[in-house]
Amino acid sequence: MVEQGTVRRMSAQLPLGRDAASVRQRVEALEKILERAFVIPGTKQPIGLDALAGLIPVAGDIVAAGLGLYLIWEARNLGMPKWQLARMVGHVGFDTLIGAVPVAGDLFDFLYRSNTKNLKIIRKYLDKHHPHTMVIDQ
């Protein structure tokens, strides 16, 4: 069971605003959870909720696709062009379609990171149209 103080700390870390800086923080946090939240013991291979959820037949792929579509929803709210949104939908759709194939799809989920690709598109847009949101990676 999660303590209420823990939930408050988690919610306090991510801003709820609609401004570009808040959106950037949310999509970066979600991408990290979906694609590289854990490291496989004994390797340096990161995995995330997307790959783990894909191990659950049908429902896992639907949940992972829904979370990927949330990234696109945030991008849409930023006012990104429709062609970029369509490209992002294509990444999520391809990941979901191939990920739904038993066994081979699970392996594919470990290798193909649609949410990382989509985050790159969002970052490029934000860096061009909202440069004040840029964060220097250390």
Rank of each mutant, 00 (worst) to 15 (best):
K120W: 04
N115G: 01
G66S: 11
P102F: 10
V27F: 06
K32Y: 06
W83Y: 13
A20M: 03
S11H: 00
F110Y: 12
G90N: 05
P46D: 12
K120S: 14
L107V: 14
V103T: 08
V89F: 15
Q45W: 12
H132Y: 03
D19R: 00
Q13D: 09
V2E: 12
V39M: 05
M88Q: 07
Q25M: 12
D61H: 13
D137G: 13
R8L: 12
L55H: 09
A20Y: 04
K44L: 09
D106W: 14
E31P: 03
R36Y: 04
Q4H: 05
P81W: 04
I56Q: 08
L69P: 02
P15G: 13
R113F: 09
M80D: 07
P131D: 09
H91C: 12
M10E: 00
V27T: 06
I40S: 03
A29T: 03
V39I: 15
L67V: 08
A65M: 12
V58H: 11
R123V: 01
V92K: 08
I40H: 02
V39H: 06
V39P: 10
D137I: 11
D109L: 06
R36L: 05
L16D: 00
L16Q: 02
R8N: 03
G5E: 11
L97N: 03
I47A: 09
F110C: 12
Q13H: 13
G105T: 08
T133A: 01
Y112G: 00
K124F: 06
A20G: 02
Q84H: 13
P102Y: 08
G93W: 05
K117I: 01
A21Y: 04
T116S: 15
T43F: 11
S22E: 01
I33C: 04
G54E: 01
A75K: 09
G90K: 14
I98H: 02
A21L: 07
A37Y: 15
T116F: 04
L111T: 10
R9D: 15
E35L: 08
E74V: 07
P41V: 11
N77P: 02
A86S: 11
V103R: 03
R123T: 04
I47L: 02
I62C: 02
H130A: 05
G48A: 10
W73A: 15
G60E: 05
A53C: 12
V63I: 15
L85I: 15
P131I: 04
A53Y: 14
G90T: 10
S114H: 05
K128S: 15
E28W: 07
L14E: 00
L78F: 07
Y125I: 06
V89M: 15
A21H: 05
H132D: 11
P57E: 02
M88S: 08
